[in-house]
């Protein structure tokens, strides 16, 4: 009993520091959440923390900001655009990468080493290096400002990491698996489809979250290849243009940002395990 008390007391400063850091980390997001539900005059007149004096006074909360940004700020349309952009731009690179990763891990062919070295170099090449030539080609092919254009761009940019991550995983599968499959007369494609893919599901899940979040949260690629066109603009582009037009209307900006955060946050908290696994596989092992 006394021993436990001593332990808790000696750990006291540690607990205080940790909880303080966690509070500081949460504070900006709480400010965002609270502000998005406050009426405009309140937001302009007092800090968001003042609501905590009477947290249950529901007359001081409103959904009007959300209504305004969805109807007049084009956030509803932008949300839909983000979905239309993100879903194919997540699936496409994973499919292409799965095939390539399997070949890199378990097939012998001329140039395998050098291609893999190039792949690793491409992992960190800044996207800026590629934008001008691709944009010109896109303009000529009328792909600029279209969804297929940005699907392809995200596929290209996501591929190096996707292949690399899946390769790490697939190369770690036991050799006997492939030996016995080949003795049983299974073709490479059959092995890939019936053995490799099902066994790699957890790695694919990690990769899917990564790619989804990366595309959903991307600003630069969307700005460059979609331009400022409103009917194709995803949330990030739309929100950043609202920063210009709504300026000091914090209640509207915060509502728009919260809408843009909602889906990634749900995914993140539901699938955090896979997300963490992906980060670890992509950094330590490799």
């Amino acid at each position: 009993m006394i021993k436990r008390l001593v332990r808790i007391l000696s750990h006291g400063p540690l607990h205080i520091v940790i909880i303080l850091i966690a509070l500081i980390w949460m504070l900006p997001s709480i400010g965002l959440l609270v502000t998005s539900f406050r009426p405009a005059p309140d937001v302009a007149a007092s800090g968001w923390w003042t609501v905590f004096k009477t947290p249950f006074d529901f007359t001081r909360y409103t959904l009007k900001n959300y209504e305004t940004v969805v109807t007049r700020g084009n956030i509803g349309r932008a949300f839909l655009n983000s979905l239309i952009i993100t879903i194919p731009a997540t699936i496409l690179p994973i499919v292409i990468a799965a095939f390539a990763a399997y070949a890199f891990a378990w097939m012998r062919f001329i140039g395998r080493q050098i291609l893999f070295i190039i792949l690793i170099a491409l992992l960190v090449v800044p996207l800026q290096m590629t934008m001008i030539p691709i944009l010109r080609i896109f303009n000529r092919l009328h792909l600029a400002g279209t969804f297929p254009g940005i699907w392809l761009a995200h596929t290209g940019y996501g591929l190096p990491f996707a292949i690399y991550l899946l390769h790490n995983f697939i190369a770690g599968l036991p050799r006997e698996l492939f030996d016995s499959a080949s003795i049983d007369g299974a073709s490479p494609f059959y092995t890939f489809l019936m053995l490799v893919l099902p066994l790699s599901m957890s790695a694919i899940a990690s990769l899917a979250i990564f790619q989804f979040l990366w595309v959903w949260n991307d600003l630069l690629v969307a700005l460059v290849y979609l331009g400022g066109t409103q009917d194709v603009a995803p949330l990030t582009v739309q929100v950043s243009s609202l920063v210009g037009s709504y300026g000091q209307s914090w209640e509207l900006l915060t509502a728009a940002v919260f809408i843009s955060m909602a889906l990634p946050l749900i995914l993140f908290f539901a699938l955090q395990r896979y997300f963490v696994r992906g980060i670890l596989a992509g950094s330590i092992k490799g």
Binding site: W25, N217, V239, V243, T254, V257, M261, F268
Partner: peptide, 19 residues
Amino acid sequence: IIFMPMAISFVGAGVIWKF
């Protein structure tokens, strides 16, 4: 809590902190 900001966009984080 510490990891959460990784899930949101830099744009979102920018607005949050601008506030």
